[in-house]
Amino acid sequence: MRNQSILCPTDFSPTASHAITYAVEMAEFYHVKVQLLHVVNKPFGDKHTRVFAETPDELIERMEKQAAEQMQEYIETLDANLPIESMICHGEVVPTILASAKQMNAGMIVIASHGRTGLNHFLNTNTAEKIVNKAYCPVLVVK
């Protein structure tokens, strides 16, 4: 951890922004860089339901462009004295986060948990929980 980067996935939610502040603080303490990651998930609807006004490829391209703009705006608001890099990938969220952590040899993953409980937890996949269970490196979950 002391000489490896910190991976911080974000969905641009307020909870994820809170997790990024933890990642930046830890990175400044250890003098390592932060790698922000946003995963553009496969859009719903594609060839089976025909609900798109644009093709799935056009939609993914638009989603990636919007995510890049949001990422740049967010990085500009951070008051960090260290390198912050960003990466936008598309695919399934959990496998993409885990593959990115492994590829960059992350020393730690800092991820937000939306704190869902009960039926809401049952109906919505818990990305943070899956990352904790499958990651090879330490994971800090921020609520």
Rank of each mutant, 00 (worst) to 15 (best):
E92T: 10
G118A: 09
E85H: 11
L98W: 04
N81F: 01
A99Y: 12
L123S: 01
E85C: 03
I84P: 00
A101E: 03
N124H: 02
N126R: 10
A112S: 11
M104S: 01
E92D: 11
T117L: 00
C89V: 02
N105I: 09
I84D: 12
S86G: 15
S113K: 00
H114N: 12
C89D: 01
A106Y: 08
M104D: 04
E85Y: 11
S100E: 15
M108E: 04
P83G: 03
A99N: 13
G115K: 02
A128N: 09
I109K: 00
H90Y: 09
V110C: 04
L119H: 01
M87H: 02
G107V: 13
R116T: 12
M104E: 01
V94W: 10
L123V: 07
M108R: 10
L82D: 01
N124W: 01
A80I: 02
M108A: 12
A106N: 09
I109C: 05
V94Q: 04
T127G: 06
G107Q: 11
T127V: 15
A99T: 11
I111V: 14
M108N: 09
T127D: 05
S86D: 14
V94A: 10
I84G: 06
P83C: 02
L82I: 15
P95Q: 13
N124P: 00
H114W: 00
I111Q: 11
A80P: 10
M108F: 12
N81H: 13
K102C: 04
A128C: 11
I97N: 07
I109A: 05
G118E: 11
H90V: 02
M108T: 07
T127E: 12
L98T: 10
S100N: 14
I97T: 04
N105Y: 10
A101W: 01
E85K: 06
S100W: 11
M104V: 10
E92P: 06
I88N: 12
S113V: 06
M87K: 01
A128P: 15
A112D: 02
Q103K: 00
I109H: 05
I88M: 04
V94P: 06
I88F: 04
L123G: 04
N124T: 00
T96P: 03
T127A: 13
C89F: 07
I111A: 01
